[in-house]
Computed example of a mutant assay.
Amino acid sequence: MTELGRVVGAAARAAGLPYVDAIAEGWFTDAQASLIGADHIHPTWAGHARIADLLGADLTHLAMLPAART
């Protein structure tokens, strides 16, 4: 976990909120480099979809979102 992740995670816990560390969870590695835009910072549309999917799964696991309906 990065120092930023530790600080933000501690602040979230102090506020009674969950914290999802996308870096620590490996959401974007070299294998997903195509999901980051030409500026090498911001996600592409497909990258945003990946974030939504992974964040939704984490928040569902943390009971912050209801399970998806099928």
Results as ranks from 00 to 15, higher is better:
39 D>T: 03
45 W>E: 15
70 T>I: 02
68 A>S: 15
3 E>K: 11
20 V>S: 11
55 L>E: 06
69 R>F: 00
57 A>D: 06
45 W>A: 15
49 A>H: 03
33 A>H: 05
41 I>D: 04
59 L>F: 11
16 G>V: 06
66 P>K: 11
35 L>A: 10
23 I>N: 15
39 D>M: 03
15 A>T: 02
20 V>I: 13
40 H>W: 09
48 H>P: 05
3 E>M: 05
8 V>T: 12
63 A>R: 15
47 G>H: 07
6 R>I: 00
19 Y>R: 06
27 W>V: 06
55 L>H: 04
27 W>T: 06
32 Q>T: 00
30 D>K: 10
6 R>E: 09
25 E>P: 01
45 W>I: 00
50 R>H: 12
49 A>P: 08
70 T>L: 11
28 F>T: 00
49 A>G: 06
40 H>I: 02
64 M>C: 14
3 E>V: 07
52 A>V: 09
34 S>W: 07
20 V>L: 13
61 H>W: 03
64 M>W: 09
27 W>Q: 10
41 I>G: 02
48 H>N: 12
3 E>I: 02
55 L>P: 08
5 G>F: 08
19 Y>M: 05
64 M>N: 04
35 L>R: 04
67 A>S: 13
30 D>P: 07
46 A>M: 10
35 L>I: 01
61 H>I: 08
45 W>C: 07
24 A>I: 00
49 A>C: 02
18 P>F: 01
48 H>M: 02
59 L>G: 05
17 L>W: 08
29 T>S: 14
66 P>H: 09
36 I>V: 14
70 T>C: 13
16 G>L: 07
3 E>Y: 04
64 M>F: 06
20 V>Q: 11
11 A>P: 06
24 A>E: 13
6 R>K: 14
15 A>I: 04
35 L>P: 07
50 R>M: 14
5 G>Q: 03
41 I>A: 04
54 L>I: 06
66 P>Q: 10
58 D>I: 03
54 L>P: 04
9 G>E: 08
21 D>S: 02
64 M>S: 09
43 P>Y: 00
28 F>L: 05
69 R>T: 07
63 A>P: 05
51 I>G: 03
64 M>A: 13
57 A>E: 09
69 R>D: 14
20 V>T: 10
2 T>N: 13
